[in-house]
Structures are given as structure tokens and as C-alpha cells.
């Protein structure tokens, strides 16, 4: 069973990492989503126990550990919040930049770099 969880986690992580390397920001978000699902699967896989819910258990009966489930649930809620946030952010990026491609975002950085170079030029002139 643990093998199955490990495989599932590996596949999730692999697909997530692949998507992360894409240019399209929506795919990057999908990649992050998949990777956070991988963490959930790992939590469940690492703490899996079988048995009844630990409420009023008859003596001697196996109890399932509630903690990994609580962890997974909490991580799920947090994952939902962060994905919602990322989507809102990408939406805003699309509105401002009129594109969802990563390279176009970097164009602004190149402009900034050119400004810095001009400033260095000014420094050199001042020094000489």
C-alpha cells in the first residue's frame, strides 16, 4: 500500500515539475497544485493506519490514527487558499501585462537592467 502511495506521489511530483518548467503561467500554477497534492499523498502514505475511528473504541480493537488525517485536511485547506490566491494573481498579471507568458514578464527586468547600466556610465564619468 505504501508503494502505491509512493508511486502516486512520484507521478504527481514529476508531472508537477514538468508543468512548472512551462512558459504559460496557468500551467505553472497547475504544476504547483500537483506538487502540493504530492505532499498530501506523502502525509497520508507516511501515517497510514487501519482501524475504527478513535471515538469510543471497544478494548483491543485497532484504531486509525486521526493525526495524519487532520494534517492532510489542514494542508488541503491551505492548498485551496494558496491556489485561489495564485489564480487571482495570474488573473491580475494577465490584466496588467496582457499576456500569460513568463518571458514577457522578464522584458520589464531587461529595461531595468539597461537603466542600471546608464547609471554606472554616469558613475564612471563622474569619477574621471
Amino acid at each position: 500500500m505504501i508503494l502505491a502511495f509512493a508511486l502516486a506521489a512520484a507521478v504527481l511530483f514529476g508531472s508537477g515539475a514538468y508543468l512548472l518548467l512551462k512558459r504559460d503561467l496557468v500551467r505553472v500554477v497547475a504544476g504547483i497544485m500537483l506538487i502540493s497534492q504530492c505532499a498530501l499523498v506523502t502525509i497520508i502514505g507516511s501515517g497510514l493506519t487501519r482501524g475504527r475511528a478513535p471515538i469510543a473504541v471497544p478494548a483491543g480493537q485497532a484504531v486509525s490514527d486521526p493525526l495524519p488525517q487532520a494534517l492532510a485536511l489542514t494542508a488541503l485547506v491551505i492548498g485551496l487558499a494558496t491556489v485561489a490566491l495564485l489564480l487571482a494573481l495570474v488573473h491580475r498579471v494577465v490584466m496588467v501585462f496582457r499576456t500569460a507568458e513568463r518571458d514577457d514578464l522578464a522584458a520589464g527586468e531587461a529595461e531595468h537592467e539597461a537603466g542600471l547600466e546608464a547609471q554606472r556610465q554616469a558613475d564612471r564619468e563622474e569619477a574621471s
Binding site: I32, I35, L86, V93, F97, L105
Partner: peptide, 21 residues
């Protein structure tokens, strides 16, 4: 809400989510 801020937010969020993972 400027372009540089948005780019910073995208980078910050993506990297730190992986850190959280």
C-alpha cells in the same frame, strides 16, 4: 500593482510555495 510588483509577487509566491512543500 505595478509591473515590477506583480512580477515580484509571482516569483515570491511560486518559490515559497515550493519551500512550504
Amino acid at each position: 500593482g505595478g509591473r515590477r510588483q506583480l512580477r515580484a509577487a509571482m516569483v515570491f509566491t511560486a518559490v515559497n510555495l515550493l519551500g512550504s512543500f
